[in-house]
Design a protein around this nucleic acid. Structure first.
Length: 650
DNA sequence: GAGTTTGAAACT
DNA sequence: CAGTTTCAAACTC
């Protein structure tokens, strides 16, 4: 039961060639404490080299030493950005494909040595040779459509993996999407541990029967990126597979059951569409509980008696879905430590999957697009950064791995219009953890739709309303009529958890065309992100939150001085304690063209919101300004031409 | 399951 | 930039 299935391939997502700045994911192996030797590396391609522990324990925890990381990255055109101390790395490379390829080779070499050392050990628990981990079971997947280094698992891996997987002790209460292993459908299995790990794999098709559905690993354009590592064989996260068994027929997403205790924590995995997660909070499901594990960032969590996982949020990069997850997490404003330790053993994370998405889709979207070819935002799959799966009822679907180029091109095209098109629709922020702890009366969550709804007839009481659908109240950003949103009416001074979302400054700026707006897509001023041109530079010393990380990680983990990013990292997330920016996410890293991004908010100059008062703590507190990951540059005519006929046709 | 409603996205 | 059209999800019957 404690034997790790060596046949579980470990996939390394190195992100795409345009992957700009955020590590694909951050499953980290703490070799210090790892007795097992499945070397999940920390950044997709990077991996541990030494140590041949037994397979009985995997501890995902800490980054390897900086030197180690640097050593591996240096010379591959990877930029390793680390904070002064630790736990923050950002890769960027113009030649990630190459880097990935090299990493792949390294991985293989590593696995070979590992396999040789461990094969005997594995054989003891299972005589099936297939359980031996093979070098080829390790994948370094580069999302680049041009990257020839997308390595595929051996065809026999699935069978082996499934067999081995069946032998695993299914203690992990995962829920995933419903897709028979042999359905032949593409599948996605994403595991996000407490917002830390989003695992995916990119496996070409159709030969990769190991994976049923893969996530779109979009480039980092916008803030919507999926960097997920999946176990194509068993649809279980490589690092978790030993102890995790997906529920039958659920292969696309998996949730880890909320940890019953701080010590026994396996973070739920979110692979479903982001905004739907917001329902969690409203339906009484304590997302806080669900993600409490991550708030215990750094704490070793044990899912399996023989498996210990340690998630280090700081080191993880997540995609859009993860960001949404993070947003949700943030919405609860749970202190990273201390205040957030109240776990709810009974947190029905699985129910979320069932009630919200899993009931029909197993946590995954199934679109029914007929004309959009699933390459427009009409398509929920596409909008969510997912490839369509066989269960989709779409017609003429091009949102499939085999059309990756087209998909990416379409995405670029959309992002060229609206760099935030793929950004989470529901933005959630939180007060600094410490403040929450200090003032327990404060609303723990704040959330809002990034753009606001425009409902006319539904009164924001139906899922037509994106705010309602996202489980958030309407805000002054909305232009809805007759709002009756049960999560908070637009006119409510302090909708549930939405206190102070709309700042007074917004009204001020609304009268100034040049002034930055808290409107996504208008984050530029004078050619610079207004966070740069307007917002005062936040001294690193003032940054306390998960600064320099992808938005996903905001406020979840207690900030550490050591995690204060270098100035270049300020591009992504900024915790400003001085300015009057509200606690909203300010996606500001937009190209100048982004100003033209369609944003209904631009049309509206909201009257003073008398009801919106900044809480004392807010006024005196730090302001969280989450800035999007730099988006793709506006496409030029040439670039559009490069998109190919499929996109041109759109 | 078919038809309608709705509002976001896309288009002009 | 505003208005219109297209689209697909949500909803109703």
């Amino acid at each position: 039961m404690s034997t790790v299935n060596p046949s579980h391939p470990v996939n390394y997502d190195c992100a795409g060639p345009n992957h700009n700045g955020v590590p694909s994911f951050g499953v980290i192996v703490d070799h210090k404490s790892v007795r097992g030797n499945i070397a999940l590396d920390q950044f997709g391609c990077n991996h541990q080299e030494e140590g041949q522990p037994s397979l009985t324990e995997i501890k995902i925890s800490e980054l390897p030493s900086q030197e180690q990381s640097r050593e591996k990255l240096t010379g591959r055109n990877w930029d390793l950005i680390m904070d002064d101390n630790e736990n923050f790395l950002i890769f960027d490379s113009s030649t990630e494909s190459e880097a990935c390829k090299e990493h792949n080779q390294i991985m293989r070499n590593h696995v070979e040595s590992y396999s040789a050392l461990s094969s005997s050990n594995l054989s003891k628990s299972n005589n099936d040779d297939s359980q031996k981990m093979r070098p080829d079971d390790f994948l370094c997947v580069c999302s680049s459509p041009h990257d020839p280094t997308v390595h595929l698992p051996k065809d026999d891996s699935q069978e082996v993996g499934e067999k081995a997987h069946a032998e695993l002790t299914p203690q992990a209460p995962l829920t995933c999407c419903e897709k028979p292993v042999n359905s032949g459908l593409s599948d996605k299995m994403c595991v996000e541990t407490s917002g830390c790990v989003s695992l995916s794999v990119q496996v070409g098709e159709p030969s990769h029967r190991g994976i049923r559905r893969r996530c779109l690993v979009f480039e980092m354009g916008g803030s919507h990126e999926q960097n997920m590592l999946c176990d194509p064989e068993n649809n279980t996260p490589p690092s978790l597979s030993p102890s995790v068994k997906l529920s039958p027929g659920d292969r696309q997403q998996a949730f880890f059951k909320p940890c019953p205790s701080p010590q026994s924590t396996v973070v739920p995995s979110i692979g479903l569409h982001l905004n739907s997660l917001a329902i969690i909070s409203k339906e009484g499901t304590s997302a806080e509980d669900a993600f409490s594990c991550e708030r215990q960032s750094g704490a070793t969590v044990q899912k399996h008696p023989s498996i210990s996982l340690k998630i280090e949020r700081d080191d993880l990069s997540c995609g859009s879905e993860i960001q949404d997850l993070a947003s949700m997490q943030d919405s609860f404003q749970v202190p990273a430590t201390g205040c957030g330790d109240n776990l709810n053993p009974g947190s029905p994370m699985k129910e979320i999957d069932k009630t919200e998405n899993g009931g029909e889709t197993g946590g995954c979207k199934r679109c029914k697009c007929k004309k959009s070819k699933c390459l427009k935002l009409y398509c929920e799959c596409f909008a969510a950064g997912l490839y369509c799966v066989g269960l989709c009822e779409c017609q003429d679907c091009l949102n499939k791995p085999m059309y990756e180029d087209t998909v990416l091109a379409a995405r670029k095209l959309i992002e060229s219009r609206n760099p935030l098109a793929f950004a989470p629709k529901v933005i959630r922020t939180s007060e600094p953890a410490t403040e929450i702890c200090e003032d327990t009366n404060k609303t723990p969550a704040s959330a809002r739709h990034k753009r606001g709804c425009n409902c006319k007839k539904s009164r924001c009481l139906k899922k037509y309303c994106e705010c309602y659908q996202g489980g958030v109240g309407c805000s002054p950003s909305c232009r809805c009529e007759g709002c009756m949103n049960t999560f908070g009416k637009r006119d409510d001074p302090l909708p549930f958890g939405n206190h102070g979302i709309v700042p007074e400054e917004e009204e001020i700026h609304a009268t100034d065309k040049d002034a930055p707006q808290h409107d996504f897509g208008r984050g530029y001023k004078d050619g610079k992100p207004f966070s740069e041109s307007v917002l005062p530079t936040t001294p690193a010393s003032q940054i306390r939150s998960s600064f320099g990380r992808p938005p996903f990680f905001s406020t979840v983990k207690p900030p550490r001085a050591s995690s204060i990013p270098k100035p270049t990292l300020d591009e992504h997330l900024q915790m400003d304690s001085e300015d009057e920016m509200p606690d909203i996410l300010s996606y500001s890293l937009l190209p100048a063209s982004a100003k033209n991004t369609t944003s209904p908010n631009r049309k509206r100059i909201s009257p003073p919101h008398h009801g919106v008062n900044l809480s004392p703590s807010r006024k005196g507190g730090r302001k969280l300004i989450l800035r999007s990951i730099p988006s793709l540059p506006p496409l030029t005519s040439d670039s559009v031409e490069e998109l190919g006929p499929s996109v041109m046709e759109l």
